[in-house]
Amino acid sequence: MTPIGSGAASPSAPQEDRRVVRVEIVISWVLRVGVVTSLAVVVVGLVLIFVHHPELLTSATRLQDLTQRGTVFPHTLSEVFQGVMQTRGEATVAVGLLLLILTPVTRVAVSILAFIYQRDRVYTFITLTVLIILLMSFVIGRLE
C-alpha cells in the first residue's frame, strides 16, 4: 500500500517543509483542473472551427496549408483576444493552449508566495528567478 496524505508525513521532516508540501498538493490539484479546463477549451475551439467553416468537412484541403509553415495563426494576446470575441475557432484553440502553458507558470508564482510566507529568502529568490525566466520566454518569442 502506498501511504497517502498526512499519515505518511515523517517526524523528521521540518514543520515548515510540511507546509510547503501541503501548498504543493493544493497547487497540483489546481493544475489538474487547469489542464482539463484548457483542453476542454481546445476541443470547443476545434468544434467552432468546423462549425464556422463547414467546407473544411467535405472539400479536400491542400494539406500543405495546414502542415507547412507560412500560414499565420493568432499568437499575440490582442489577436487571440479579438478572435475569441468573434468566437473564432482558431483563437479559441489558442486560448486553451495558452491556458495550458500558463498552468506551470501559475504553480511557480504560487510557490513564491509560500516561500515568502515562510520568510525563506533564498528560496523566494530562486523561485522568483524561475518565474522571470518563464515570463521572458514570451518576450523573446515576440522579438524574433
Binding site: L66, F73, G96, P104, R107, S137, F138
Partner: peptide, 27 residues
C-alpha cells in the same frame, strides 16, 4: 511541466503552435 512551459511560451509567441495540430495532439 515547468521546463516545457519555458520553451512553449517561446514557440507560442513565435507563432509555431498551430491550433490544427497542437489542439488534437495535446488532447
Amino acid at each position: 511541466g515547468v521546463t516545457a512551459a519555458a520553451s512553449a511560451g517561446l514557440y507560442f509567441a513565435r507563432g509555431d503552435i498551430n491550433p490544427f495540430i497542437a489542439g488534437p495532439v495535446a488532447a
